Computed example of a mutant assay.
Amino acid sequence: MGALSVIRLAILPDSANYTFLIHDAASGQTAVVDPGDAGPVQEECQRRGWRLTHIWNTHHHHDHVGGNLALKAATGCTVIGSAVDAGRIPGLDRTVADGDCFDIGGHPVQVLGVSGHTIGHIAFYLPDAAALFCGDTLFSLGCGRMFEGSPQQFWQALSRLRALPDDTLVYCAHEYTESNLRFALSIEPDHPVLKQRALVITALRYQGVPTVPCLLGEEKASNPFLRVDQPELAALLGRDAGDPAAVFAELRRRKDGFS
């Protein structure tokens, strides 16, 4: 069993989406995570000589599932998504839920329930590859908007992701790092890790280089949405660190109004 190849594709430029191709050379299996647009996926597979075998959907939003039917019609691939989203994911063939496990080319894929951005949102964790495909639950220095879930659900989801190993690569679905950085610094302007990351992120984006994937260990140290149970951050937000869901709710409220 060899190493997996992970290819990042930029799609839907208006919403700065990423989709990811995951390929196992030994078996020939190829999965795509959250294909909001079929065209770039088909072109990249053709260029590399890969045959798409699976679609993995983290949640039902159109910028994550918009390419499902075209890709399925072209390749006959199997669409995997949350059982909760059974009526909302186009072309869904196989439903999964928190705690389920399947594989790609013998590499285990663990399904994590991470409701908050939506109800039924899932993430895919590949321990062999130290890779997490988390959709819109966790972003570099941020998290998704809370469209359907509650603060308690969202904080529980982020806590689960925070518990993964520090060397995990976070493949999130949007290039929002610069705006997330500006917000984080507005809350904690003197945070030393944030200030250091600002130098790196600003340089990368100036050169047009993506910031995704990011390293979970760095997120644990600097992403405010992963630290709402820390007294220092709670105090800055005027909330009690003993109620991290309330701290999260206040932080998310401020981010929603940030420009």
Rank of each mutant, 00 (worst) to 15 (best):
D100I: 10
D98F: 10
T95K: 08
A130N: 05
L112E: 04
S140W: 05
S115E: 13
F124Y: 13
F133E: 03
R94C: 12
I119A: 15
G116F: 00
S115Q: 13
H121D: 12
A73V: 08
A97D: 14
L71H: 02
M146N: 01
T137P: 09
G87F: 14
G66T: 04
D103V: 06
I104H: 02
G120Y: 03
A130T: 11
L141W: 01
T137G: 03
D93E: 13
F133V: 02
L71A: 04
F124L: 14
L126I: 13
S115P: 12
C134M: 13
G66F: 03
G113A: 07
F139R: 06
D136E: 06
A129I: 01
C101W: 03
D85C: 15
G135N: 08
T78V: 15
G67S: 04
I122V: 09
S115R: 03
G120A: 12
G76E: 15
G144T: 09
A97M: 13
C101G: 08
F139D: 00
V109I: 09
G66C: 01
G81Y: 02
L112D: 05
G113L: 01
G66Y: 08
I80C: 00
L69F: 05
L126D: 02
I122E: 00
P108R: 02
A129M: 00
V65Y: 07
R94D: 10
H121W: 08
G99M: 07
V111P: 05
L126Y: 05
T137Q: 15
C143A: 11
T137R: 14
G144V: 03
N68Q: 09
P108Y: 01
F139P: 00
Y125T: 15
Y125N: 14
M146V: 07
C101T: 11
L132I: 11
T137E: 06
H107T: 03
V96Q: 13
A73P: 04
T75L: 09
F102H: 07
L138N: 00
G120Q: 04
G76P: 13
T75W: 10
R145K: 09
F139H: 06
C143H: 07
G87C: 09
T118R: 08
L132H: 08
G135I: 13
V79A: 06
F124D: 02
T95D: 07
S140L: 12
Q110S: 09
D85T: 06
A129V: 06
F139G: 00
N68A: 09
L71Y: 01
I122A: 06
V79R: 05
S115N: 12
G120S: 14
H121G: 10
